[in-house]
């Protein structure tokens, strides 16, 4: 088990290095440069050169990348072109908002989706199963921004049940939760349908396997057969999908944070791209990448804990 985890973390590190390098190259290929942005069009050549040197932009690209990694290991992602604050500090200030939003979205949608998927598989072809199926497919088809706009109109503007913008007062947990409801509804809704379909399919497959017949032939209570024996296996593909789905969740969060004017990585990325604030763009994209790599790694590790065949490599 330990060796599996170590191997998987090693792989994650390699992926991170490759991803960061690629990002670095891409960002530097984007037209527009931070020096002109900062100094304005009338800056003298000397001033430009001085700033380029300070930011390391005068060095060859490979050196810049190496320096970037070196600094990264020390937690230094450079400074904001405009405010001169450390990028790490800026990004870390925003990340909790996004993480909470993503985790809340996936948590409620996974719980509901798994329950619905189980129900559908066990009551296959019943009215409930059909209804769940139709609803699932419908919510999968609706994009998060549509849900967010309509939920804003209905629940925030019309009914005024939930606040429309912001993330709530710092320190007031209830207020923050209250602010979390609509955004996580918008992000999670299509996931409920998706997870329900996925769990239903894998449950049906597992329920047809021989070991389930064995469990029943030994008179195990049906609850135990479904939850302890079938779901244990049927959940594996869902864990992987959620891990990989982190990428989609992050991009959905970008939209949602803007619609609901929530602080977070999304707003930060968009703002800094608009301003060509390279260090901040790089920093926030880097952290998004880290979140993504970490979540896929975590999904694999959870799967290995749930499935002994994976950790033994068979």
């Amino acid at each position: 088990m330990l060796s599996y985890i170590l191997r998987r973390i090693g792989l994650a590190l390699v992926i991170t290095v490759l991803a960061v390098t690629t990002l670095f190259v891409i960002i530097h290929a984007i037209p527009g440069d931070p020096v002109s942005t900062m100094l304005g069009p009338r800056a003298s050549e000397d001033m430009r050169a001085a700033l380029e040197q300070r930011m390391g932009l005068d060095r060859p690209l490979p050196v810049q990348i190496a320096l970037f990694f070196g600094n990264m290991l020390r937690g230094d992602l450079g400074t904001d072109v405009f405010s001169n604050r450390a990028v790490t500090e800026i990004v870390l200030g925003q990340i909790p908002y996004t993480l909470v939003l993503i985790l809340a979205s996936i948590a409620w949608s996974a719980v509901l989706g798994i329950a619905l998927g189980c129900y559908s598989a066990v009551r296959r072809n019943s009215l409930g199963d059909r209804l769940t199926g139709i609803l699932s497919v419908s919510v999968i088809a609706v994009p998060a921004f549509v849900v967010s706009l309509y939920s804003l109109l209905i629940f925030a503007v019309r009914l005024q049940w939930f606040p429309a913008i912001g993330a709530g007062d710092t320190g007031d947990i209830l207020d923050q939760l209250h602010h979390l409801v609509l955004p996580s509804l918008a992000i999670g809704l299509s996931w409920v349908g998706y997870i329900a379909r996925l769990v239903r399919a894998s449950m049906l497959e597992v329920l047809g396997e021989g070991h389930i017949r064995t469990a029943r032939a030994f008179g195990l209570p049906e609850r135990r057969v479904i939850l302890g024996y079938a779901l244990r296996l049927a959940i594996l593909p869902t864990v992987t999908v959620i891990g990989v789905g982190m990428g989609f969740l992050l991009s959905a969060a970008v939209f949602i944070e803007i619609v609901f004017s929530r602080p977070g990585l999304g707003s930060l990325v968009i703002d800094s791209i608009m301003q060509r604030n390279y260090p901040v763009v790089m920093g926030s994209v880097l952290f998004s990448t880290l979140i993504f790599v970490a979540s896929t790694t975590l999904a694999d590790i959870v799967n290995a804990i749930l499935d002994p065949r994976i950790r033994s490599g068979k």
């Binding site: 396997e209 021989g210 008179g219």
Partner: peptide, 22 residues
């Protein structure tokens, strides 16, 4: 269900499929 596994027991054909793999 009370009889299954106590009074009447089963052994199935395919031993590779008989047990829960996890």
């Amino acid at each position: 269900r009370g009889l299954r596994g106590t009074e009447i027991s089963m052994v199935f054909q395919d031993p590779m499929q008989t047990h829960n793999p996890v």
